[in-house]
Amino acid sequence: MDIFFDENMAVADRTLITYNVQSEKVVVPAYTGEGQKIVRIGRYAFSDSDIVKEITIEPGVEIVKYCAFSNLPNLEKITIPPSVVQSYDGVFKGDGKLKLIKMGMRLKDDEYKELYSNIRYDVNGEAYVMANTFSRLTGTLENMMIDEGYSNWNEQEIRGGIERLFLVGEAEDVISGVIMFSESDITDEYESVKDIILGNKTTPYSIEADDMNDYWLRAKQIIAVSKAAVIHFNPNENKMDRDKIIVNFSIELAHAFWQAVEKVQYRGEQYYLYSRNYLYKKNEEEYIKELWDIFDEEGNPLDDMAVKEEIMKKYYLLSMI
């Protein structure tokens, strides 16, 4: 059995057994100081500290066990790499200030080489999130970002006061499994969701009529970051008006999701594409050519074809046709 000790942690059998949290920012290592791989974060390994505010798990860690990051009352942010393919019950139990969970955010290659030169960064296989992983949050989690690789979700993993849910990557798969979109799991606990943001691989066809249940209606806005577009659904009070869906194009392609979100939130220049019966169109070409008109920021239609073409080119719309 591999054994490793240093001043902060104890590792056995590729499992981080305990960690003495002593700083506000903690990096959960994927390798020991002697190069042994750390695959699992053990039960309560990082729990019960009022010091830590930010945790980053290094790519390479695969399993996060029961309550591993629980009872961290001042934890505000945690980043989980796509290598984490399994997590257990109560991982964030009692983390009363947790505002942001970033799951599976890919590092750029150069960043990756610099930071993790000895770690093979691999996202093969499907991720698996156990039931209740994100349950028992105390209601302060505002943002949750889920990148590709997390396509299998058990029930009731997301609870608490999430106001903004980002689903990045293979959102089509995610949608099918995320509790928020499962009719059988409608509870009042999700009333806090204001924004649902879908990922850069989301296609219009990812969203089927069956998904338009109460969760969607409760959200104040639903934004989908597709290849070239940010699709902004604007539910009308308590009822989604499917004839008035606003498709809201972002400034640039949304490859880097976090950047895209920043742009979504702060961009000053916006154009709107309105469509009718958007949800029921199955053919992308028809969808683009026939249904979309371009409107300016104030909602007035643009009649000038040259201007429309310019906008289409600028925002890569033509590449979608």
Binding site: A10, A12, Y44
Partner: peptide, 28 residues
């Protein structure tokens, strides 16, 4: 014993203490 020491040093609560030992037990 070194593991037990580390666990005790790192533990502020009985939950963490017990959880860490359960994990260690599983590894052993």
């Amino acid at each position: 014993l070194e593991f037990i020491k580390r666990i005790v040093y790192a533990s502020q609560t009985k939950e963490k203490f017990t959880g860490n030992l359960v994990e260690l037990r599983e590894r052993v």
